[in-house]
């Protein structure tokens, strides 16, 4: 902890020591950093030091708000608390956001109890109450925290933006503060990093496809195959997640398959597919939707409402079908090639 922490204004007395007092307005650098993290640039090192911070001029009665040390979380919370006098307790989650860190257990009971002790919080505030984000609850056991640290845990709201209202109405959570959403914008902002993450496993596959298609049918066919594959991946990673509520079925594999069929139809039109042989056409309609389906299924990891048991069921039923479709497509192309 030093004066280089983001938003540092000055040192502020806290109990026997001092902590950074934070600005609540974000700079251009803060916004650029968030944008880069959305694209996967420096995302795993986008963090601030864990510890206690002051927002405004908090005293011994001031509320203590807890968050993760992912810098995007830290920035959202300090911005939401503009004009307030609040202590901000930042947990060491290794640069992971509250919800994912709670799932992993790093935003958890042990770390919270440890951080309360390490910051000598009981000497800074006279009350014994910690305000936590609701999405931190999968990692924190409120009664264990009480037993081990003496502090009560209040789960305030899902979104940092609701904190001012929560504080204003005397620490009461309204129904809407407790309700998750997954709107167009919330889905769209998840897409860039997913695209970046998918590049690594997709490039070798694209290369193999390109070489195989080149050897079998020449450079034109190779380019078409790779373009078709790239489009199928993009449809599964970007288009289907954004269009989620418009796609049929509750199953993500089926949603992805449907998006993939539409995509393959459009791709065939765009790529001059009237000239394709029957086996090649069938193979395209099997393999591309299978690829799209897999990546849409994978998006369950990013959603706010899918369960582990549901994903397991989809994988148990879906993966053999997807694998079978890819295999059938390869057979069709190979056999079609040998017969022609």
């Amino acid at each position: 902890m030093n004066d280089k922490v983001p938003g540092f204004i000055r040192w502020y007395p806290a109990g026997q020591g001092q902590v950074p007092q934070l600005s609540t307005s974000l700079t251009a650098a803060d916004r650029l950093g968030a944008c880069k993290a959305r694209w996967g640039i420096n995302r795993m090192h986008y963090l601030v030091p864990a510890g206690l911070y002051a927002i405004g001029a908090p005293d011994a009665e001031a509320p203590v708000v807890v968050t993760a040390n992912y810098k995007m979380s830290f920035d959202l919370v300090r911005k939401a608390l503009a004009g307030r006098n609040v202590w901000l307790l930042v947990l060491e989650t290794f640069g992971i956001n509250v919800w994912c860190a709670a799932g992993k257990g790093t935003f958890g009971t042990d770390e919270l109890v440890r951080r309360v002790a390490a910051t000598a919080l009981s000497g800074v505030v006279s009350h014994r109450r910690l305000i936590l984000p609701i999405l931190g609850a999968p990692g924190v056991s409120a009664h264990q925290v009480k037993r081990r640290s003496g502090f009560d845990v209040a789960y305030a709201a899902i979104r940092a933006d609701d904190l001012p209202e929560y504080l204003d109405n005397g620490g009461r959570t309204t129904a809407s503060m407790r309700e998750l959403s997954f709107n167009w914008y919330e889905r769209l902002v998840l897409v860039p990093v997913e695209l970046v993450l998918v590049l690594k496993p997709s490039l070798p596959v694209a290369l193999i496809l390109y070489l195989a298609a080149w050897l079998a049918a020449g450079p034109g066919a190779a380019a078409t195959v790779v373009a078709g594959y790239a489009g199928a991946v993009f449809t599964g990673v970007a288009a289907a997640p954004v269009l989620l509520p418009l796609l049929p079925s509750r199953s993500f594999a089926v949603k992805g398959g449907a998006a993939g069929l539409v995509y393959t139809f459009l791709f065939r039109l765009a790529a001059g597919g009237e000239g394709w042989s029957l086996p090649v056409t069938l193979a395209a309609f099997l393999a591309f939707p299978a690829v799209t389906s897999f990546y849409t299924l994978n998006f369950t990891g990013c959603t706010t409402y899918t369960s582990k048991s549901g994903v397991k069921k989809e994988m148990r039923l879906g993966l053999p079908v997807l694998g079978g479709a890819i295999l059938a497509a390869l057979l069709l192309v190979t056999v079609g090639r040998m017969l022609s």
């Binding site: 309700e179 998750l180 959403s181 997954f182 509750r250 369960s307 069921k313």
Partner: peptide
């Protein structure tokens, strides 16, 4: 959740 439901009959 408003507008979104996942598979039925799987929750543990």
């Amino acid at each position: 959740m408003k507008g979104f439901r996942y598979l039925e009959g799987v929750a543990t």
